[in-house]
């Protein structure tokens, strides 16, 4: 198995820690960022395969990061999964239109994260 990487972007250290534990369990090496601006720098330094992305964050929010990263790197890299308390249809549609591959409504658990990584094409459904 190749070294697979996921960047977890969330302003809450508690959420980052919980997500890290699950994502590492799915076989990914994890990096963290606490806002969109940090995440953008991280992607420029080394492109992760996947980004797990919170929406509401200080400095640069998730949607803004999403637009920047798509403008810079195109529609398919990295694969981006929103992970946010925003749960209205309008918000989901907005994120998909901006180029997100999948969308998680918090709270989440290992089962949801696994399923959404499958939907996003990051994992096979065999497990």
């Amino acid at each position: 198995m190749q070294n697979r990487s996921c960047l977890i972007v969330d302003d809450s250290p508690v959420v980052r820690r919980a997500a890290r534990r699950i994502v590492e369990g799915l076989g990914f090496t994890v990096r963290e960022a606490k806002d969109g601006a940090e995440a953008l720098v991280s992607c420029r330094t080394e492109m992760p395969e996947a980004v797990l992305l919170d929406w509401n964050m200080p400095v640069m929010d998730g949607l803004e990061f999403l637009k920047h990263v798509r403008a810079e790197h195109g529609p398919s890299r990295p694969i981006i999964v929103l992970c946010t308390t925003e749960a209205s249809i309008d918000r989901i549609v907005e994120a998909l239109a901006a180029g997100a591959q999948e969308y998680i409504m918090k709270p989440f658990d290992a089962g949801i994260l696994h399923d959404k990584f499958v939907q996003a094409g990051l994992l096979s459904d065999a497990a």
Binding site: A87, V93, L96, M105, I112, D115, K116, Q119
Partner: peptide
């Protein structure tokens, strides 16, 4: 529930 619609369902089909 919000939990159930996130198990196995692609977000495009949810929408």
């Amino acid at each position: 529930s919000q939990f159930e619609v996130q198990r196995g369902l692609p977000v495009q089909l949810l929408v």
